[in-house]
Amino acid sequence: MYDPTRLAALVAVAEAGSITRAADRLGYTPPALSQQLTKLEREAGTALLVRHHRGARLTEAGEMLVARARRVLDELERARHELARLTGLSGGALRLGTFPTAGVHLLPPALSAFRRAHPDVLLSVADYDPPSGVTAVAAGEVDLALTHTYHPAEPVPVPSSVGLEPVLEEELVLVTAPGHALSSASSRLPLDHLAGQPLISMAPHHPARREVEALLAEAGASPALLVPTPGYAVVCALVSAGLGVAVVPEMVARTAVTPVGVRPLEGGRLRRTISVAHRAEEVAPAAEAFRALLRGAFGRAGRAAAP
């Protein structure tokens, strides 16, 4: 039996024309999505995609499977909608909190799927810089909030009334200007190779990244430009312009608007975990349905991306 998540991935590639664009739409990293497609091809016993420099196209077998996958996925959506009406999701509201990266790359496809399954639920979205989304959940301002933690880092206290469910774990990677010597290879870069490199330093005194910045300093990276808060779009633009190198989450690097070189770091020690915060003792049907959707949409990708 084919995994519906992998079928949805194949349909997304067929519609987007490339694995990179499909991954952006679904909220995966391209390597994680490619891994899901490879598993689907193993299940099918034949090639479903032909990858080329401009993207990817379906084989004859892929065209046949996509046609049937669309019907299967449509039936699953109808079933979710009918079950929602039986379980009280024919109305009500869902208030969500998010932070910028998740709001741009993770939340839209998840909300789109939720809206298709539960069209009568009123949705609202608010921005919270982590960890303030956790506080907003505890205060009842929102039902759920996407938040993040970096590793290594000092543990952040979480109110006893709030639970954190990991959704996605990603490595931090090096970004450089296009053509930079450090990004010319695909192998993992030892941290000590950053010695003497001009680093665009992201909030060395900000609690979320303090330990990450300390490790980069120990490796010998030389702060050349300080961005007081981790505004990743700005950081990638500065890197692209040749003002220094930076270490950012892989999702940020792969979806940067400005061209950058990307290279993984040795050891996988630097990571970011994206979680959904929820009230631990309260079971609201809409919030529970959205958490289940997040698990289905990003859980496999999160485990695949983990070091």
Rank of each mutant, 00 (worst) to 15 (best):
M1A: 13
D3E: 09
T5F: 09
R6E: 09
R6W: 08
L10R: 04
L10H: 07
V11S: 09
V11N: 06
A14M: 08
S18F: 04
I19V: 12
A23R: 03
D24C: 11
Y28D: 14
Y28N: 08
T29K: 04
P30R: 07
P31Y: 02
A32V: 03
Q35K: 12
T38H: 08
K39I: 15
K39C: 13
E43H: 11
E43Q: 11
G45F: 07
L49Y: 04
V50A: 01
H53T: 14
A56N: 04
T59V: 09
E60I: 12
E60T: 06
A61V: 00
M64F: 06
L65E: 02
L65I: 11
A67H: 12
A69Y: 00
V72I: 15
L73M: 08
L73T: 03
L76H: 13
E77L: 13
A84G: 15
R85S: 13
R85H: 11
R85F: 03
G91E: 15
R95G: 01
T101K: 00
A102E: 02
V104P: 04
L106A: 12
L106V: 10
L106Q: 13
L107V: 05
P108G: 05
R115I: 06
P119A: 06
P119F: 15
D120P: 04
D120M: 07
S124C: 03
V125W: 03
V134W: 02
V134L: 05
T135Q: 08
A136D: 05
A136P: 00
V142D: 03
A145Q: 06
T147L: 01
H148W: 07
T149N: 05
P152R: 01
P152A: 06
V158T: 02
V158F: 00
G163C: 07
L164Y: 03
L164C: 15
P166S: 08
L168H: 15
L174Q: 08
A177P: 10
P178R: 11
G179R: 09
L182D: 01
S184D: 06
S187H: 09
S187M: 14
S187T: 15
R188S: 15
D192I: 11
D192F: 07
H193W: 11
L194V: 02
I200E: 14
I200C: 10
S201P: 10
M202C: 10
H206A: 14
P207L: 10
P207W: 14
A208Q: 10
A208F: 06
R210D: 12
E218D: 13
G220I: 03
G220C: 02
S222P: 04
P223Q: 13
A224I: 12
L226E: 13
P228C: 10
P228A: 10
P230Q: 00
G231Y: 05
A233G: 15
V234Q: 11
V235D: 04
V235R: 03
V239M: 08
S240Q: 08
G244Y: 01
V247N: 07
T255C: 05
P259Y: 10
P259F: 05
V262H: 07
R263W: 07
L265I: 07
G268A: 09
V276F: 10
V276Q: 08
H278N: 13
R279L: 09
A280C: 06
E281K: 11
E281C: 01
V283H: 14
A284Y: 02
A284H: 10
A286P: 01
E288P: 00
R291G: 06
L294C: 13
R295S: 15
G296C: 12
A297M: 15
F298M: 11
F298V: 05
G299Q: 06
R300F: 06
R303W: 05
A304E: 11
A304C: 00
A305H: 06
